[in-house]
Design a protein around this nucleic acid. Structure first.
Lengths: 255, 255
DNA sequence: GCGTTTGCACGTTGTTGCATGTTTTATTAC
DNA sequence: GTAATAAAACATGCAACAACGTGCAAACGC
């Protein structure tokens, strides 16, 4: 590492960035030694660069910010919240039950959270979900066929609906676009609506897992109603008023 | 295993994840030695990654969350060979073709190797294969439904066969158990046989990708014949005699 | 002179290795 | 084949340490 003395702050950041692009990583302590400045100054530089999205700050240095695929990103954001909600939802599942699990990143988290060795049968339209449980002990997996929608990550067409209608499940977990207390689930796409309605009608109980952005006071624009739900899983910090509204509508609210 | 000293904590997790994606599995003790940290730190890393759903924790290390456990090992061994064969097989695919892709680790490699933006339609019974192409530009994916066999990694039952029979494809890639020049493909399981026969009959041409252990002089024990193939992809070091035998049987041999 | 940058002090947070006790797997004895 | 045992891997709590952010005053450059 070449020592670079007497450099301007801005110049130093540029140098760090070049280094970062070349090596993919920088160590704060090394930089401080190379520039003969304090660790604090380097930390300030890295903080600035990270604020501009030019690097990813880590403990002890920084890594090059790597662009992530659009679907993969949605999978990561709110990941810890989704995992927590998925854990709660998984606790609603009993022994030897048949579960409809719709496509979606939250439901993929649910599939991972499902307990093993309980004789569960998972019926899904999403290869993602199928892969999450396939091969784990005590799981039967039934894959619904059809043309896969790349945005949804699963099959939702008429062929898929027909297959779903041949099954009777204990629980179903439809992917949630929006949800309100008065009328239940909503979605944007017509085909999605048909599929979700089908799995709800083919199931004894319906569980909706709702991240905060899905809970709306009143669904309005560009959405079509799907139907009522029996269980709702929400984050622990959801307002009491919102939960009460769902309870009054006959929905069991879990957190 | 390269020793990686002076790495940043978070960087180490990234490194483990890359390793995991490449090999399908990691051993905790090896990682600890490579990074020159205690086993505890590695365990903490793996625990964090598993909590994010990025890997599946097992006793002694971790496996990639995506592939199935028994299949995952097969995926690792001969991985580079399978990638090479998959590349050759992918070159047999033309524009706007419809492909039947059976389950199996070799075919998963094929799916990854398929060229983008060629208007290809992939029909498969394996969620593995579907995930490999879903979302990539220029792919249509048709998922065949049915009960998934955890050992095979795909659906092969009568329901699946019926769906396959409704389709006409240009090429099909049946998973190979054993193959000989005289009678073509063989397999061990009766249900598998029915499925493979169905997709072969529904396709114009049949491509078999054969790793060395699949090429046998004469299939004998516990196998049922499936049928003839039109193309065979073999390793470059296959004997001329073996390749000549297939060519005499009217099979186009590629390497 | 004034804004910026820098280094330092301080309290806070993240990471690590070790000690402890528990769980899982492998091995041995029966 | 099953029970008892040994070994390895595991989780947890803890203390030491490194890195962190912040506030502030001194030093620097225009």
């Amino acid at each position: 590492m070449n020592a670079v003395d007497g450099s301007l702050p801005r110049e130093r950041q540029q140098w760090i960035l070049d280094r970062l692009r070349r090596d993919g990583r920088v160590v704060a302590a090394d930089l401080a030694q190379a520039f003969r400045v304090s660790d604090d100054s380097i930390r300030r530089d890295l903080r600035d660069l990270a604020a501009q999205g030019l690097c990813r700050r880590v403990y002890g240095g920084a890594l090059l910010a790597q662009p992530v695929a659009p679907l993969g990103e949605r999978h990561h954001e709110r990941a810890e919240l989704k995992r927590a909600l998925a854990g709660v939802a998984a606790s609603l599942v009993g022994e030897k039950q048949i579960l409809f699990i719709d496509a979606g990143s939250t439901n993929t988290a649910l599939a991972h959270a499902l307990p093993e060795r309980r004789g569960l049968t998972v019926v899904t339209n999403a290869p993602d979900v199928a892969m999450a449980v396939l091969g784990r002990p005590g799981f039967d997996v039934l894959m619904l066929g059809g043309r896969l929608d790349p945005h949804i990550g699963g099959a939702i067409g008429s062929r898929t609906v027909r297959q779903a209608q041949d099954i009777r499940a204990d629980l179903c977990f439809p992917g949630v676009c929006a949800i309100d207390a008065a009328s239940g689930l909503w979605t944007v796409d017509a085909e999605e609506t048909v599929f979700k309605q089908a799995i709800i009608e083919a199931s004894g109980e319906t569980v909706a897992i709702a991240t905060p952005d899905k809970l709306v006071a009143s669904a309005t624009h560009h959405t079509a109603p799907i139907g009522a739900i029996t269980h709702l899983v929400v984050p622990a910090d959801t307002s009491d008023a919102a939960m009460a509204a769902y309870r009054n509508a006959g929905v069991a609210v879990h957190w």
